[in-house]
Design a protein around this nucleic acid. Sequence first.
DNA 1: GCGACAG
DNA 2: ATCTTGTCGC
Length: 311
Amino acid sequence: MDFYSALEDLVAQIPAGKIAFLGDIAQALGDKAAAVALPRALARISVSCGEAKRVLKADGSPILPGTLAALKRDGVAVSGLIVEGAERFAFREFVSNRPLQRLRNIQRKCARRVVLRDGVRKPRTVAGVDVSYNEDRAIAAAVLMDSETLHTIAEAIAEVDVAFPYIPGYLAFRELPPLLTALRSLPAKPSLLFVDGHGILHPAKCGIAAQLGITAKIPTIGIGKSYLVGEINSKIIGKGAAVPVRIGGRIMGYAFRSSESKHPIFISPGNMITPKTALRLTRAVCLSRVPEPIRLAHVMATEKRKRKNDT
DNA sequence: GCGACAG
DNA sequence: ATCTTGTCGC
């Protein structure tokens, strides 16, 4: 059963005359933190699920258009733009197998398979992957290049419909299928792969770069453009500087100021590499803020999407 | 007062 | 990620 069906099942459990809060639905899905991602997912299923109009934010405000009118018909007291005292109508007795909790367990299992030893020290080739989106249609690109000259050797593109929304912490369940398809379309396996997203710098120590590295059995490095987890004590001085990011006191990656921008990138091992080597090899391919292989894959995926859009 | 939640 | 215009600077 896919995520959207699981969400539909939950929402369908909300009885007429009652409402449900985002946080409680997220809880029923197995991760309270997923609440922030639900409005978008609810909009996606709303066509086939009228009960989605019974879902409210914690402050009693509606998510979907038409919610207040629908609730009025159901006999829920609406005042102004919100449901006053929504708590009184709250439904919480959801029956669920908590799909996100299951996925978290898969990540934990995957984390145990991660190898934090160097599988490469001097890669001959490097590759980068990235995804662009048209709704839930993913366009993934993979670029293979010479690690020394940074000349492109080969490119591949793949289009895949995804059935999983973007939820922080669960990115791999959305992007892994398209990325794998693009990666496998390359004429050769790269010695090292850069992935757009974190590696072990992840709540379950298993971000998309780790999962991809395990699945494809190659060394991978995760490159996050924004913070996800970890403690950072020291400050990053200037361009080219890096500071460790720790989880439980252990160095899991680095915040690296790769460009003039004050926003660093977050480097962490995906698989078959140490944090230190990941930092060194990333430095070697950063001509701008983002490693070249990823930057090129990003450009490729985006251009492909745009070309399709105005055709 | 308490939070940093990738793309 | 995507939606968007002009604009500042190398």
